[in-house]
Amino acid sequence: MTTFRRVAGKLGALLLTLFLASVLVFFSRFLVPGDPISFLLRGRKPSPEAVAQVTAQYGLDLPPWQQYLNWLAGILHGDFGRSLQFRQDVSVVIGERLPVTLGLVIMAGTMIAVVGLIAGAIAALNRGRVLDRAVLVGLTVLGAIPSFVGSIVLIAVFAVQLGWFPSFGSGEGFWDTVYHLVLPSIALAIVFVVLIGKVTRSSMVDQLGREHVEVATSRGLTRGTIIRRHVFRNAIGPILTVSGLLVAGLLVASSIVEAAFGLAGIGSLLVQSVDRLDFPVVQAIVLLIVSAFVVVNAIIDILEPWIDPRSAAGAGAR
């Protein structure tokens, strides 16, 4: 199969998944019994004009599939509707808050990658020894510390007790922002380190036991060369797959951390919008997170043949 056809196929699958996800996000509203106006305007005392305006804006008098197409067409033009709580376009509200979340996710992602890879590699290269056990125990404990627990512990120790880091807000300017995001990103990273750490370890242990590593040893290559060229290189595939799956988890968990540290990101916006019954914003953020996840994983999928040449031939990874 040619590269072009393969990539085209993957892109087709990507679009299909995105389409189905958008259908789910849109039509979820129809799961709620009762009339859509009172759902959208829950908790508010709408004037007749407001009802008329919302009805017109969402085309609530149209058949559902027509509503969906209008909504989809709007999104493709960057129009996610209007926020009920801010009386602003959803795209503007989200746009203001996206940078904080991205900063948080990037910092946390970097920490996860660095700590996870190092811990996993150390454990794998010492498999069966005390150091391996210690790393595994450490990872298991870290993996049991959810973001909200991490947040309050970090706030208690480093913000309140020691006063080293701020516990609230995202700061001004680049370095101040980074400074403000240190504790939040650690809190976000903790629980995910275990995933990268363990997949790195098991993937490398798997490769270390393979015969091609023994062959490389028999040819007089140094241990360092073998680990770099044959063990780690071959272990990348599963690590990358797990990393792709992390993306969605990170984005969602950022809502917890943002809430705990008072950061104005899309995570805390999501929670706030659920709390204030601002459904258009909820819909938009959900769709955004889901799309980010699907796209990142599609990219990893498309890159696969460069990671493992067998996958292109459909020979199956072994």
Binding site: T17, A21, A248, G249, V252, V290, F293
Partner: peptide, 8 residues
């Protein structure tokens, strides 16, 4: 469904 994390 995988694209929707459980918490989401």
């Amino acid at each position: 469904i995988f694209a929707f994390p459980a918490l989401l």
